[in-house]
Design a protein around this nucleic acid. Sequence first.
RNA 1: GGUCCCAUCUUCUAACGGUUAGGAAUCCAGGUUCUCAUCCUGGCAAUAGGAGUUCGAUUCUCCUUGGGAUCACCA
Length: 419
Amino acid sequence: MPEKIVRTRFAPSPTGFQHVGGIRTALFAWLLARQNKGHFILRLEDTDKVREVEGSADHLVKSLHWLGLEWDEGFDKGGQFAPYKQSDRLESYKLWAQKLIKSGRAYADPYTQEEVDGFRKDCEAKKKPFLFRDHRPDNPPKWDGSQPLRFKSDPKDRTWHDAVMGDMHSGAEANDDFVLIKTDGYPTYNFAHIVDDAEMDISHVIRTQEFVSSTPRFLDLYEALGLKQPVLATLPFVMAIDGKKKLSKRDGAKDVLDYAKMGILPETMLNFLASLGWNDGTEQEIFSPQELIKKFSLERVQTSPARFDEQRLHWMNGMHIRALDQDELMKLCSDYWPNEAKDAGEDYKKQVLGLVSERLKLLSELGELTSFFFADPNVDDKLKGLILGETKLEASKAKKFLEVSIKTVESSDFSVDKL
RNA sequence: GGUCCCAUCUUCUAACGGUUAGGAAUCCAGGUUCUCAUCCUGGCAAUAGGAGUUCGAUUCUCCUUGGGAUCACCA
């Protein structure tokens, strides 16, 4: 039997920029696909029209391009299972929904929003967990799209295997009747991603921990739809610097392209993100993208969360900068020269770069590190006046200026305290 | 509150049930380099707590504690 081809996907929703946590998920999915000569698919999960942010898709494409995480099929370039944008796939979801209705596994939710909220509050007051299925209507109306379509869950104990987390289990409480199709006609994530993964023949679903608690529902849905479940791989969170919360935009996570602006190299970012939750078991710390592809394995992914430590990122960037040859570095630096250097010749700049490349951690440091190579220093007139009694500094006087300065410094008590 | 996940230095992490618990970032002390940086040497620093299994537990089991996630017509 031929080994099934590995097909992984990255499926963000267009709600703004990509932060490094999301990118790490993309990276691991990409690594797995590349390692197995499989396909990496970029899908856009744009079913929440309220949260959608203009320009997100372009920004996403730009971010992945910068990192070199190229995809084989995607919402912007098509492919065998196009379209790859959920809002273009509504017919598919309706078809699968009809199947569920026919088999008695989906029903129209007859309640108003207020009624459901009432049920919920009731349970809260009684300190009981709220389960929609306790309010399942006996004779639901025929679904006409004006009501939410709900999944009729099959609550039971479930066990499953996660390629990273190992054996997992959950009780029947984890299953409930969730919404499949909203009243705006769009499917929910819970429904849409299952349908898409199946139709796009995704072999490995890689995502972060927040979905663990919904996994029993996904399993329920696979069963009801008669679909084979893909390999599930759950990644630990990338935590914010303070280590208290998963990294998120709300708590100040940075746009991955901000790191590009700072002069973090893409290979540094990939290396660093890979090191957050994965290592090859040796003491090697610096990996090229090619080495990552070769050595990555889901089995060696951690189960515990890691913090995003920028200090370590900067160190790693220095290591990657030093691994470049001067010509490559020269090319990358082109946007980072100080204003003073705009009239300087390439050869001169190259020499300057040679002098500072050893100490560069971020390309954006190039300006302050080199500006004095391109401009005469600005000597404070007041200081000159103080020492020489005059403010004009000609070549003949410069020597005297320095001599006096040295004497002044030497004769003073040049100690930390005095300073 | 229900359900679920997690737990080694400050941080990222290594350790077939047997190691003086290793490496890396940071910090400190030296050395090399006319400065800085690079580089080299050394140092500080951890198995959350308690039971159990075992000749032996960072590793397996249970409890406690702590942290996190999720309980939406968001993903």
